[in-house]
């Protein structure tokens, strides 16, 4: 960089210099942020699959399932982070604190997504699959879920991206991730506002979210060659 003493400048544009000066720490936080965002979505999907399947199969389960998951989503994330350790008997700042809280949100979002995805399978296709002799489990994994991929993938994009922003909130209560940059920015703003770590945190969060989003879009394309065939008719 051109600036010799970049970390002393408080201009928002000097986030890059700030990054270079604290590279090891920032990269570690980026990595923490990455898996803290991803793992809850993966676990959330695994839990949401059977719940979504149940609420699709037993129609009366769907309305309460959707209401409960909607309510869970209205709990502010900071409150949930703080509540998790006492409720589960963990110590404060336990490494499981963030994954557990975010898994709750991911499940809340994905149950509905899975149920709607399964509902997107045309009735005659499901009927034909039963009639040719698929048993229940193979019907789900060989026919229904592959057809539900586009709907479920759309839900995964939302869950992943919102997790990136919620992980950052956990950073402000002391968990190690990119959220710590916001905390640093606040602490360094002693005489006046000190922007570089805050802007750096925003930039890295956005880049991380964009990367996840692109990966999911790409993965969906790989899994659904049949949808492109329709467009190219």
């Amino acid at each position: 960089m051109i600036l010799a003493d970049s970390s002393s400048s408080s201009s928002p544009l000097h986030f890059w210099g700030y990054f270079l000066d604290h590279r090891a720490e920032d990269l570690r936080w980026l990595w923490d942020h990455t898996y803290l965002s991803l793992i809850p979505v993966v676990i959330g999907l695994v839990i949401a699959l059977p719940l979504g399947w149940l609420s699709r199969r037993y129609g009366w389960l769907y309305p309460p399932m959707v209401s409960i998951s909607g309510l869970l989503y209205t709990i502010p994330s900071i409150a949930l982070f703080v509540m998790v350790p006492p409720l589960l008997g963990l110590k404060s700042l336990d490494p499981l604190q963030v994954p557990i809280a975010l898994t709750v949100y991911s499940v809340a979002l994905l149950v509905r997504v899975v149920a709607d995805g399964l509902a997107s399978v045309p009735e005659d296709v499901a009927q034909a699959a039963t009639a040719v002799g698929y048993k229940r489990l193979s019907l789900l994994f060989r026919v229904e879920l592959p057809i539900a991929v586009p709907v479920i993938a759309a839900g995964l994009r939302v869950a992943t991206v919102s997790n990136v922003s919620m992980v950052a909130i956990a950073g402000t209560i002391g968990q190690e991730n990119l959220g710590r940059l916001f905390d640093q920015g606040k602490q360094l703003s002693t005489t006046g506002p000190y922007y570089p770590p805050i802007v750096l945190g925003i930039v890295l969060c956005v880049l991380l979210a964009l990367t996840f989003d692109l990966l999911i879009v790409f993965g969906t394309r790989m899994l659904t060659p049949w949808r492109r065939a329709v467009v190219g008719r």
Partner: peptide
């Protein structure tokens, strides 16, 4: 049921083909 169905061909109105295959 599954064994019975594999031995019986079934054709429906809109064909009900598997769109992903």
């Amino acid at each position: 049921a599954a064994e019975l169905r594999r031995g019986i061909g079934y054709v429906i109105q809109h064909a009900g083909l598997f769109p992903h295959r």
